[in-house]
């Protein structure tokens, strides 16, 4: 599975609290352009919190990040400590603009199907066989989406990431409409 297909899994796993079904991966077309591969290596890689070289605190509001720009060094491992002080469910997701665009479509589908609500994750939908719902075919229940954290109102989460390359990335909330409203920040990865 490519990285972004997994965010759905994150949600599903959050809802069920457990891994239920293996991914029928073949059924799921890549979001965005078919055949387009996101190279995980281009944005870095997940890391253990213990490997961090520093911690950056991010506050989420409706619908923004504070701060909305961070500078890191290539090779640096950063632990982001993210607090959702808003009333809405938000995401902290590290990627490129194109990756976010693709991911937003998935998030929109989840919102449409009621798996996500504006304020939280719909735990009542646990146990449904989403794979049989039109538009949700092949959505995995597997939880292995390391570059994203979904954070409910009032909650705090952390995400540790090792930035490998000298590039510019975005951290973004892909809950429908939030990215467009400006809930996106810049990660300047410098040498």
């Amino acid at each position: 599975m490519r990285l972004y297909n997994r965010t759905l899994s994150t949600v599903a796993a959050l809802m069920t609290g457990t891994t239920l079904i293996a991914a029928p991966a073949a059924a799921f077309a890549a979001p965005g352009e078919a055949g387009h591969k996101h190279d995980t290596a281009a944005i870095g890689e997940p890391a253990k919190a213990t490997a961090k070289t520093r911690t950056i605190q991010i506050t989420m509001g409706d619908n923004y990040y504070e701060p909305n720009a961070v500078q890191v060094k290539a090779g640096e491992t950063v632990r982001f400590l993210i607090t959702n002080k808003g009333e809405f469910l938000h995401e902290f997701n590290i990627g490129t603009a194109a990756m976010h665009a693709a991911h937003q479509k998935e998030m929109a589908t989840m919102m449409e199907h009621g798996m996500l609500t504006p304020t939280g994750i719909n735990k009542g939908m646990a146990g449904m066989d989403h794979s049989r719902m039109p538009g949700m075919e092949g959505v995995s229940m597997k939880h292995d989406d390391p570059n994203s954290a979904l954070i409910e109102p009032g909650k705090i989460k952390d995400l540790t990431w090792k930035f490998t390359k000298n590039t510019t990335l975005e951290f973004a909330c892909n809950i429908p409409g939030h990215y467009e409203s400006g809930m996106v920040g810049k990660v300047d990865v410098q040498r």
Binding site: M111, E112, H113, G114, L116, T117, N122, G124, M125, M128, D129, R132, M133, P134, G135
Partner: peptide, 21 residues
């Protein structure tokens, strides 16, 4: 509407349900 493919769904727990499909 294909109800068959939605069997076992608990509609009451779907406040945000959208009939998009």
């Amino acid at each position: 509407m294909d109800h068959g493919s939605m069997q076992g769904m608990d509609h009451s727990s779907m406040p945000g349900m959208n009939h998009g499909s």
